[in-house]
Write a protein that binds this DNA or RNA. Sequence first.
DNA 1: AGTTCCATAGGCCGTTCGGCCTATACCACG
DNA 2: CGTGGTATAGGCCGAACGGCCTATGGAACT
Lengths: 208, 208
Amino acid sequence: MISVSLVEDHADTRESLAALIDGAPGFRCASVHASAEEALQNIPKQNPDVALVDINLPGMSGIECVAKLKNLLPQLPILMLTTYEESELIFNSLRAGARGYLLKKMAPMELIPAIEQVHAGGAPMSMPVASKVVEYFQQRQNASSEMEKLTQREQEILALLAQGFLYKEIGERTGISFSTVRSHLRNIYEKLHVQSRTEATVKYLGAR
Amino acid sequence: MISVSLVEDHADTRESLAALIDGAPGFRCASVHASAEEALQNIPKQNPDVALVDINLPGMSGIECVAKLKNLLPQLPILMLTTYEESELIFNSLRAGARGYLLKKMAPMELIPAIEQVHAGGAPMSMPVASKVVEYFQQRQNASSEMEKLTQREQEILALLAQGFLYKEIGERTGISFSTVRSHLRNIYEKLHVQSRTEATVKYLGAR
DNA sequence: AGTTCCATAGGCCGTTCGGCCTATACCACG
DNA sequence: CGTGGTATAGGCCGAACGGCCTATGGAACT
């Protein structure tokens, strides 16, 4: 029996979701909450198996609610359920600790398997959401045109540099001398059009 | 009719996949390729609707193959199909331009809907893969808890620091003295548990 | 055989950074 | 009315950095 808590301010949506969950064999709606504040007070008492949270709530947003819930119940898998598919909302929700992100326009029948999936350790996402997440990784590809001009060795040294190692330590780790590290860095800086360690680090991190 | 090209070195896997695709109504296996090199030469001629690529290929890896294919055919949606679920392989595949990532251990019947999904602009991922992708976003959460301990002023200065400005320049931009910049930085470094500009920059960039 | 790229190595020198110290003024909370 | 947190400011000093210079050996391509 998987118990589910809902956080949703619209009364009718809330009730139809509760009915849908209670109507599915093996699922139970543990509690419903009309606001983030109320949810934070009461969900820990219920200790459900899964939480379904709307983003657009009065007062504290659903995203903040997820972050605070994660602090109280780090093991609780949380699903966002919302109308919005803006990238920023998606990414912020995931950063806050949500494990899945569903759009309300999806077929209600798909909700139950999604709850099952997130309970089993999965990360259910509606199709356009998964696309945006994948595209997030690909953006970083563009900035790496300058990075491609670096030789293997140079990339290796840059990776260490970006982790904060001293020139001396980079030399030890790669088996070359301090002077050679500096020679490589000179070339790296020129190729990346930067003049400092920090700028090189920013470019390096931005390109992955 | 959705046409699919395969890149897979194991002959038996390759043939059973081809048979599976040709056996599905509305799907056609456009071509099969045993190596990345061969695929790069011939897939552009076939111009399929979808490509399925294995990671573990002799010679050029499947990930490199995806990157080069993306250059030749930027619109082609590519699905990785592989045994490995290491995070680095997943992330590198997505960075290279793959739109989905499937594990071979999944049920063969799920392959066809996944191809359909990626062709429709989706991003199909096997359950453990989607989990790892979501967890990638959550890592950033940890680093930002330290960031929250910084005062407004400190965050402002850190932002400039992470862009590579000299202490002197940071002072000019914020209207405070060089010495005060250093005082703030001392506190910032202590709060973030770092001892260099580069480490602070990495934490800062990782938390956004 | 010559050219070009890469990895290796070093010297010199001024600038920047970061650790350690102290100090004042303000504001809020108890 | 003290206590603590924040923003401001400075001195001293050694370590680290980065710009400039040159140089050699190997690999690859022409």
